[in-house]
Amino acid sequence: MRCTRVALYDIKTGSFDEVVGQAKSGMVPLFKESQGFVSYGVAQVEKNAFVSISTWETRAQADTAAAKAAEWVKANSRDRFTLRANYVGDLAIDTSHREPVPTAR
């Protein structure tokens, strides 16, 4: 069963657009290189807060991603934003997951 990680961050300095730039150059490559990666997104939810949402093939891979994200934030962005809450859970509904379409022969 696929699993998702949702992390809520508070922006301490700078803007959401700057956070997006950092995510594109840092988190996107980090996650894309990780085993089990399915998808990643970032959304602003308050003036000074945003969520990071990633989907993984397994819970273990989502947990590993949470640890990698924490390391990356600590090394690259802890002065700009901090983790408020982190959630990892199994997806009950995943409309992006599609079964392969059989090919005609």
Rank of each mutant, 00 (worst) to 15 (best):
E33G: 11
Y87A: 12
K47G: 02
L30C: 01
A62L: 00
V101R: 13
A92R: 13
V19A: 06
V45Q: 01
Q35H: 10
A69Y: 07
Y87K: 09
Y87M: 11
G21H: 03
T13E: 15
D94G: 01
G26W: 00
Y9R: 02
L30D: 02
I11T: 02
I53F: 14
S96E: 15
I53C: 14
A65R: 03
D79H: 13
R2Y: 13
A49P: 07
E71K: 10
S25A: 09
E18M: 04
R59I: 08
K68S: 05
R98M: 10
M1D: 11
M1P: 09
T103F: 03
Y40L: 09
A67N: 11
T95S: 13
S96M: 12
A65Y: 08
D10V: 04
L30P: 00
A43C: 07
D90Y: 07
T82Q: 12
T95I: 13
F37A: 01
T95L: 14
T82L: 13
A60D: 11
A43R: 10
L30G: 01
V42P: 02
K24Y: 09
Q22G: 15
W56P: 01
F37Q: 00
L91R: 06
K74N: 12
R59F: 14
K68E: 07
V45E: 04
V101I: 10
T64H: 12
G14C: 00
E33I: 05
V45M: 02
A67E: 15
S39Y: 05
D10W: 04
P102E: 11
S96W: 08
T4P: 01
M1I: 05
E57G: 06
G89D: 03
A60Q: 13
V88T: 15
H97F: 14
Y40N: 02
T95M: 11
G36C: 04
L30F: 00
K74E: 15
R2G: 10
K12Q: 14
F37D: 00
A66R: 08
A7Q: 11
Q44N: 10
R105Q: 13
A104P: 06
Y9W: 10
P29C: 01
P100K: 11
R84M: 05
I53E: 01
T64F: 12
D17Y: 12
F31C: 06
R59M: 14
D79T: 10
L91Q: 15
R5F: 07
P100A: 13
S54M: 06
R84Q: 06
R98G: 04
E18W: 00
V20T: 05
L91N: 11
R59Y: 09
A70W: 10
R78T: 11
A65L: 05
K32S: 15
Y9P: 00
S15Q: 00
M1F: 07
A69K: 05
S96Y: 12
V51D: 00
A85V: 14
A70D: 15
A49K: 14
R84S: 06
T64K: 14
V45I: 07
Q35W: 09
G14K: 04
A62P: 01
T4Q: 13
V73M: 09
S54R: 08
K32Y: 05
K12T: 10
A65W: 10
D63N: 12
A69C: 07
P102K: 12
P100M: 06
V88R: 00
R84E: 05
A7M: 14
T58F: 05
T103Q: 03
A70R: 15
N76M: 04
T13Y: 07
S15P: 01
G41W: 07
